[in-house]
């Protein structure tokens, strides 16, 4: 049977994870009917185009004692959000930082910074550092702690008909 292996097939073969073996790319290549060299060059392209960000471990924050996860949210002036976001994003304890649209009137916040810590007290200390950094430019803020992981699967491609 001859079949063209497209990027989607490669992604589907890898979305469950990489085998933890001496030659993981050989195993994936065999499953797809490609040579290891072909698979690796395809993966290099996927990395260069940003489809694959990296091949790495997803750690379980909770198991590592990072039991508190606070999504800190801030209302800052739109014309200053780029400069301030860059500063907040550069803080070592901020794992993700984004500008997002407000949902007025319920949600006045446009800057989101995720902070992990071993306790809520630690997250609160870190939040105060962000607050100090933003100063009077910040008009309102809040911290939303996660109380339960309801789902965590990552990207799943649908099966094609």
């Amino acid at each position: 049977m001859t079949q063209t292996i497209d990027d989607r097939d490669i992604i589907k073969a890898l979305q469950g994870g990489l085998p933890i073996t001496k030659t993981p790319y050989v195993e994936i290549a065999d499953a797809l009917g490609l040579s290891e060299t072909d698979l690796v060059s395809r993966l290099e392209v996927l990395k260069s185009t940003g489809v694959i960000r990296r091949i790495a471990a997803a750690p379980n924050h909770y198991k590592l004692g990072m039991n508190a996860n606070g999504m800190t949210v801030w209302d800052v002036q739109d014309d200053l959000v780029a400069a301030l976001g860059a500063k907040v994003g550069a803080l070592s304890f901020v794992t993700h930082c984004y500008e997002r649209p407000r949902a007025l009137p319920d949600w006045p916040y446009n800057l989101f910074a995720m902070v992990h810590g071993t306790s809520r007290e630690e997250v609160e200390e870190k939040r105060l550092e962000i607050k100090t950094l933003l100063g009077s430019v910040c008009r309102a803020s809040d911290t939303l702690y996660s109380t339960r992981i309801l789902k965590k699967t990552g990207l799943r491609l649908r099966s094609r008909e």
Binding site: Q15, G17, I20, R54, K63, G154
Partner: peptide
């Protein structure tokens, strides 16, 4: 197996796809 790593493999960016 002890749950310190939830997954090991590529991280995909849906936007780039």
């Amino acid at each position: 197996s002890q749950g310190f790593i939830t997954r090991f493999g590529p991280f995909f960016d849906a936007a780039a796809m």
